[in-house]
Amino acid sequence: MPLHVPPAPAPALRCVLAALGSPTAVSEARTPSLRTAQGPANPELPLPVHVLDHITPQATSPTRLAGWRFLIRCAERSVAAADTILTPDGWAFSHFFEGPYITSTERALRHAEAMPMPCQPRLLSVPELYMLTLWLHRDCTDDGAEGSLAATDLLVPLAPAPPGIAAHRPHRVAELLPMLNHRLTPAPLLSSPA
């Protein structure tokens, strides 16, 4: 499937490039692979990061744009990622990081490219479950910063996924949100016998 990667805001890209060019930002990052990388480090595959704060009883929910994530590639592999956030003064570099979500994101993107439908890749975070998914949005005309979850969009949980949710298995939004809603709904308290 052709992935329609939305262009990141130019200021977000500029702040990541500035951070990559700053010896202090790179040396203070908790990313040994970025500090020891040989050759130039390039930000690639910008993905908007949306947050799902809550799920409504109808198993739908609005999302909000939290930032843009760039995979940082050195030579032939991604060694880290850089997050940007929107501040009152505009886009700002947040931090570099590494870990399993980087390889998991790349794997999910490779599988998405092999699917038959065109889509726009995004990341969707569910903070209450410590969960990150690749969100394959069907409306490729959206700019990446807007748009809401559609029942036919696909969500691909990234590894590590919460217990009981298979990583890298695509789910339709209409299928996965009720499962997440169930996990987020507190169990009723049992009353003690009188």
Rank of each mutant, 00 (worst) to 15 (best):
H168D: 14
P23M: 06
T133A: 12
L134R: 03
P43I: 00
A108E: 01
T56S: 12
R172F: 14
S125Y: 11
R64S: 11
A174T: 13
D142S: 14
M1W: 10
T152G: 10
R169L: 12
A66H: 13
S192P: 08
M115H: 11
P100I: 08
L190P: 05
T87A: 09
P160A: 03
P127L: 01
V156A: 05
A150D: 11
I165A: 10
D153L: 02
W135D: 00
P88F: 03
A92H: 09
G21N: 12
V126I: 12
P2H: 09
R107D: 08
S192T: 15
L13G: 02
A75Q: 15
A150N: 10
R64G: 01
A187M: 13
T56G: 09
L52D: 03
S27Y: 07
P62F: 10
S27F: 09
I72K: 06
R14E: 14
A112P: 05
H50S: 07
E106R: 08
L34I: 06
A167I: 03
N181H: 15
E113Y: 07
R110M: 12
A112G: 09
L71W: 05
H168C: 05
L190M: 13
A10K: 12
G99F: 11
A59E: 08
Y130S: 15
R30Y: 11
H171V: 10
L17M: 12
P62T: 13
P116Q: 13
